[in-house]
Amino acid sequence: MDVFMKGLSKAKEGVVAAAEKTKQGVAEAAGKTKEGVLYVGSKTKEGVVHGVATVAEKTKEQVTNVGGAVVTGVTAVAQKTVEGAGSIAAATGFVKKDQLGKNEEGAPQEGILEDMPVDPDNEAYEMPSEEGYQDYEPEA
């Protein structure tokens, strides 16, 4: 019985440690998101679009440190934060509304985080759909 109880105690310690790591990862992701939003706020009209992409990228980098179902929630929060940063930029006159959601080359930025393969159960990952990809044929 002692062996059984000791095993359960060790398992509990492992769960607590994993929860603490997840909590730490979420806190880091939130900190990076805040950094990115402050970065966007300090940019001029020309830099705002690039700044919004930076927020998304920093958040995406930190999301990889967070495991399990938390990833889905962090990704949703990050996307809403990026959308909010863009709205703030438009409201303050840093950028025109028609410039939001495009990178410096004018290509749409939507789907940055949505296409990231995420499995809350950590069982399997699927690649994003290939609808947006084109076949590449090298020139002879």
Results as ranks from 00 to 15, higher is better:
24 Q>D: 07
117 P>D: 05
81 T>E: 02
56 A>V: 14
103 N>E: 10
96 K>D: 11
48 V>W: 13
95 V>K: 13
19 A>E: 00
93 G>H: 06
74 V>C: 06
53 A>G: 09
85 A>G: 02
133 Y>M: 12
134 Q>E: 14
60 K>L: 15
23 K>W: 04
123 E>Y: 06
6 K>Q: 15
80 K>Q: 08
109 Q>F: 11
80 K>G: 03
125 Y>S: 01
134 Q>R: 09
90 A>P: 09
135 D>W: 09
88 I>M: 09
51 G>M: 14
52 V>W: 13
87 S>Y: 13
79 Q>P: 03
139 E>Y: 09
80 K>V: 11
78 A>M: 06
51 G>C: 12
83 E>F: 03
85 A>Y: 13
35 E>L: 05
139 E>D: 10
127 M>D: 02
140 A>V: 07
56 A>I: 07
16 V>K: 03
107 A>G: 09
77 V>I: 08
20 E>A: 06
136 Y>I: 12
52 V>R: 01
49 V>W: 11
115 D>Q: 07
45 K>V: 14
84 G>P: 01
58 K>C: 07
109 Q>M: 11
127 M>S: 11
86 G>H: 15
138 P>K: 02
32 K>H: 10
50 H>N: 13
62 Q>H: 09
38 L>H: 04
56 A>K: 06
10 K>Q: 12
75 T>Y: 12
68 G>I: 08
88 I>C: 03
71 V>K: 04
7 G>H: 15
58 K>A: 04
32 K>M: 14
125 Y>C: 02
89 A>W: 09
50 H>K: 08
122 N>V: 09
28 E>Q: 13
50 H>E: 11
107 A>W: 08
26 V>H: 00
132 G>I: 08
62 Q>G: 10
60 K>S: 12
134 Q>V: 05
81 T>L: 09
82 V>L: 13
20 E>F: 13
67 G>F: 14
63 V>R: 02
56 A>C: 13
90 A>Q: 14
85 A>N: 06
91 A>K: 10
8 L>Q: 00
119 D>Y: 03
135 D>G: 08
9 S>R: 05
36 G>V: 07
90 A>T: 07
75 T>N: 04
108 P>N: 10
31 G>L: 11
118 V>T: 06
12 K>G: 06
13 E>I: 01
52 V>A: 12
9 S>T: 14
45 K>D: 00
89 A>F: 11
7 G>N: 07
38 L>K: 02
112 I>R: 07
125 Y>P: 12
79 Q>F: 14
75 T>F: 12
8 L>W: 15
43 K>T: 03
9 S>K: 03
32 K>C: 02
118 V>Q: 02
20 E>N: 03
65 N>C: 13
42 S>T: 08
78 A>N: 02
78 A>D: 02
112 I>S: 13
120 P>D: 03
96 K>Y: 12
5 M>D: 00
114 E>M: 07
95 V>M: 03
59 T>G: 07
129 S>G: 10
89 A>E: 02
67 G>Q: 12
44 T>L: 15
30 A>H: 04
62 Q>L: 13
20 E>D: 06
122 N>F: 14
85 A>D: 04
6 K>D: 09
90 A>V: 14
89 A>C: 13
45 K>E: 00
95 V>I: 12
107 A>R: 08
55 V>L: 12
41 G>F: 12
75 T>V: 06
27 A>Y: 09
30 A>P: 01
140 A>Y: 12
108 P>K: 10
134 Q>S: 06
108 P>W: 11
103 N>Y: 13
16 V>D: 01
14 G>T: 11
9 S>E: 13
5 M>I: 15
119 D>R: 15
62 Q>V: 14
98 D>V: 02
108 P>G: 00
90 A>C: 15
133 Y>F: 12
27 A>W: 10
77 V>A: 06
16 V>W: 13
59 T>L: 15
61 E>T: 06
105 E>Y: 14
99 Q>E: 12
125 Y>Q: 13
136 Y>P: 08
109 Q>L: 12
4 F>I: 03
98 D>F: 07
55 V>C: 08
46 E>S: 03
80 K>F: 14
17 A>D: 02
97 K>W: 04
85 A>H: 04
68 G>S: 12
23 K>F: 15
26 V>S: 00
2 D>Q: 06
21 K>W: 14
15 V>C: 08
9 S>D: 04
119 D>I: 14
39 Y>S: 09
76 A>T: 08
130 E>L: 06
33 T>L: 14
29 A>H: 07
91 A>M: 06
29 A>V: 07
127 M>V: 13
37 V>H: 00
40 V>R: 02
16 V>Q: 10
50 H>Y: 11
128 P>F: 04
81 T>S: 08
129 S>D: 08
36 G>R: 04
84 G>L: 12
105 E>F: 06
42 S>A: 13
76 A>K: 04
7 G>P: 02
133 Y>N: 11
69 A>N: 04
119 D>M: 07
78 A>L: 11
86 G>A: 05
132 G>T: 11
71 V>C: 03
54 T>S: 01
86 G>P: 03
29 A>W: 12
28 E>I: 12
13 E>V: 14
90 A>W: 10
69 A>S: 03
64 T>I: 09
89 A>L: 14
122 N>K: 05
7 G>Q: 05
11 A>D: 00
87 S>T: 04
51 G>N: 05
56 A>F: 14
97 K>D: 10
90 A>M: 14
35 E>K: 08
8 L>M: 03
124 A>P: 05
5 M>R: 03
107 A>C: 07
110 E>C: 10
65 N>E: 09
54 T>K: 12
25 G>R: 13
113 L>I: 04
108 P>R: 11
20 E>W: 04
47 G>S: 10
17 A>Q: 03
132 G>E: 14
37 V>R: 00
33 T>Q: 00
46 E>W: 05
44 T>W: 15
11 A>W: 09
96 K>M: 06
105 E>P: 07
103 N>P: 04
54 T>V: 14
62 Q>R: 12
61 E>K: 10
31 G>K: 13
38 L>G: 05
63 V>M: 02
73 G>M: 10
121 D>S: 13
33 T>I: 15
87 S>P: 02
106 G>M: 09
89 A>V: 09
86 G>D: 07
88 I>K: 02
133 Y>V: 05
68 G>A: 14
57 E>F: 03
116 M>T: 05
100 L>R: 07
66 V>H: 02
56 A>L: 04
40 V>H: 05
73 G>L: 14
123 E>Q: 06
6 K>P: 02
106 G>R: 13
45 K>N: 02
44 T>G: 03
91 A>T: 08
129 S>C: 06
88 I>T: 02
39 Y>M: 08
44 T>P: 00
45 K>A: 12
47 G>V: 14
6 K>A: 15
62 Q>N: 12
131 E>G: 14
88 I>V: 07
99 Q>V: 12
121 D>N: 09
44 T>F: 06
100 L>I: 12
46 E>A: 14
90 A>I: 14
109 Q>E: 02
7 G>T: 15
77 V>Q: 02
48 V>I: 11
62 Q>M: 05
59 T>A: 14
58 K>N: 08
130 E>W: 08
131 E>R: 12
9 S>W: 11
41 G>M: 15
34 K>F: 07
46 E>F: 11
82 V>G: 04
67 G>H: 12
100 L>K: 09
90 A>E: 13
117 P>N: 07
134 Q>A: 12
78 A>F: 10
13 E>F: 06
23 K>Q: 05
25 G>P: 01
24 Q>T: 09
96 K>G: 10
78 A>W: 15
84 G>W: 09
112 I>Q: 04
9 S>N: 07
30 A>K: 01
50 H>V: 01
52 V>F: 02
70 V>T: 03
32 K>A: 12
40 V>Q: 00
11 A>F: 03
11 A>I: 07
76 A>C: 10
90 A>G: 00
49 V>Y: 05
99 Q>P: 06
46 E>Y: 09
25 G>E: 03
17 A>P: 00
60 K>G: 13
34 K>T: 13
20 E>L: 11
55 V>Y: 14
55 V>A: 08
17 A>T: 06
79 Q>H: 12
98 D>E: 07
88 I>W: 11
137 E>I: 11
50 H>D: 05
28 E>D: 13
135 D>K: 05
86 G>L: 07
78 A>G: 05
68 G>Y: 10
27 A>H: 06
22 T>S: 03
46 E>Q: 15
23 K>P: 00
14 G>R: 08
